[in-house]
């Protein structure tokens, strides 16, 4: 993979392009249509905030473009390659090389220290940052040898971000990264995400319920009933420290 040069250039090239993506769980009368034909183009390097009510399909969409799940129908093109037909092995390689994930509940390895949690990823990545640099990026250089049990929620989430970005991913997918955090800690996490997006140029998708976060994005995508209801570009972006909830 090639490292994105910084600063990012929004609109310069397409990172993800999806056409007619549907996802159906189950079959027959019990079938649940999580996605009902999603068509969207997401440019390289942007910070994209995805909004939507519970059940609107935003997490399913994130899982599919992140290679955690596959679409029932439709095309998912990542940098010109269709990943909707990829097998498990190819998806594993795709995640390993290109995708960084951040979840609401951190999902750190409790048995590894902050540094070791990051090293877990850098040991299998092609062109990683050092665990120390990745942790410094999120402001945790003083807490590197602490176990998750010794860290606060916000610190754990920042370790998760450091772990996600240490491989220098092309895309960073965050599902409710601030969902379990208070406002002040949440803003620290958003700052960390913005720094990563600015410095590494990774296309960043951030799912949230919290509409006030939308103002830090280049682009806001709103999901409803398994479809994209609205896409808007922010002409002016706020800094994380300027928002509150």
């Amino acid at each position: 993979m090639t490292k994105q040069s910084s600063p990012p250039r929004p609109g310069n090239g397409i990172c993800f392009s999806t056409r007619g993506v549907t996802k159906v769980y189950g079959s027959g009368p019990a079938a649940v249509h999580a996605l009902r034909g999603v068509d969207i183009d997401l440019p390289e390097g942007e910070m994209v905030v995805v909004l939507g009510a519970s059940g609107s399909g935003k997490s399913t969409f994130l899982n599919i473009i992140g290679g955690l799940d596959t679409a029932t129908e439709g095309e998912v093109v990542f940098r010109g390659q269709d990943i909707s037909k990829a097998n498990q092995r190819e998806l594993t390689r795709y995640r390993r090389q290109h995708v960084g994930f951040v979840f609401q509940f951190y999902n750190l390895m409790p048995s590894l220290t902050a540094r070791e949690n990051v090293a877990l990823v850098t040991e299998i990545a092609d062109n990683p940052l050092s665990p120390e640099d990745a942790l410094a990026l999120v402001g945790l250089e003083q807490r590197m040898d602490h176990f998750p049990a010794q860290l606060s929620g916000g610190e754990q989430q920042r370790v998760a971000i450091a772990r996600a970005v240490a491989k220098q991913p092309s895309v960073l997918l965050c599902d409710e990264p601030t969902g379990a955090l208070d406002s002040k800690t949440g803003i620290r996490v958003l700052e960390a995400l913005k720094t990563v997006n600015d410095d590494l140029g990774a296309t960043t998708l951030l799912i949230t319920h919290n509409a006030s976060i939308a103002s830090i994005a280049n682009r806001v995508v709103v999901f409803a009933d398994g479809k994209v209801r609205e896409v808007r570009e922010n002409t002016t972006r706020k800094q994380p420290q300027d928002i509150s909830w």
């Binding site: 750190l108 409790p110 048995s111 070791e116 877990l120 602490h146 176990f147 049990a149 010794q150």
Partner: peptide, 30 residues
Amino acid sequence: PPPPPDYSRAVGTRLTQSKVFDQQTRMILR
């Protein structure tokens, strides 16, 4: 939800910090 189990106080954690282990092996030993 329960807090993550605390591995920092386990006797023998120090032994698992050796550089010879990769992270996966370290997880097993811890």
